[in-house]
Amino acid sequence: MSVIEMSGLRKEFTVRVKAGRLRREKRTVTAVDGIDLRVERGEMLGYIGPNGAGKSTTLKMLTGVLMPSPGEARVCGLRPVAERTRLAMRIGVVFGQRSQLWWDLPLRDSFELLRHVYRVPAGEHGARLARCRGLLDLDEFLDTPVRQLSLGQRMRGELTAALLHGPEVLFLDEPTIGLDVVSKQAVRGFLAELGRAGDTTLVLTTHDLADIERLCHRLVVIDHGRVVHDGSIAALHSRYGSRRMVVAELDAALPRPPELPGAPLQRVEADGHRLVFALESATVAEVVAGLAGLATLRDIAIVEPDIEEVVARLYRMTAEAGGATVTGAP
């Protein structure tokens, strides 16, 4: 059985829009528009999409905060809203912008409180906390009130708080938002470690694609509430034609742009001293050999495809395909 199952999952919000001085019009906004997805135990799933694509709404439906309308979701075999408290025992949730910690109390106290909230035996709780303290370097601020923690420290605390009851699924909504580079790396390293153990399923939404590259083998891209890609990052690159580039620096500009089979010229820069080729069917060696016959090469660089660019292109494509989701109610 899959740990997470979504079938035909939808979410419609009714909003009232001003239509004239006093009149207000009811409009239905579809935030999630029919998502079918299965996530298996131990998977690390990156769930991305532009602002307003429906990422957080999906997570809220999976954690029992919001009710689907209509459609069905099962997490650990449970219906999230109807069996909310039972499900809560088996999942962990980190909302990057909201806190599970007690603002005015030392971090240590929040952990102890959550032990009572989740009814975790002291021994189990202590062992998990010890592990997190080691992996996330919590010791230096364990006795500091949460309100005095830096964002990075607080996020390390939030991660610990979400794991102390040993959840089977961990939902992370923007866990690296606003963090500095060092904190981001700490969080990513920790999640990678968690994923390596293999018994926790991880669902991560983010705007930082480096999170995904570092952590997730599977990437689901949603836009306008629909899944527009589901697969590995490599599959995303090959599907949307992102290619490796060869950047060649020449001693002197060529009189006319060279044509190399299987490697179309993309850009000419620096007054013709720099040429950028896309690798389609040609290999790097073939491009280099072809160029060497035409000019003196000063330098060669190979640029890996940029996931940001692919995803940006993907968003633009779905926008052009006309994902109109705002419909006036009758």
């Binding site: 021994g123 202590g126 062992a127 998990r128 040993g166 968690l194 018994d199």
Partner: peptide, 15 residues
């Protein structure tokens, strides 16, 4: 690292 999670896992008490 696995001792971090897993509801069925038996872990030594830390005291």
């Amino acid at each position: 690292p696995g001792t971090l999670t897993g509801p069925t896992r038996v872990v030594p008490p830390s005291g």
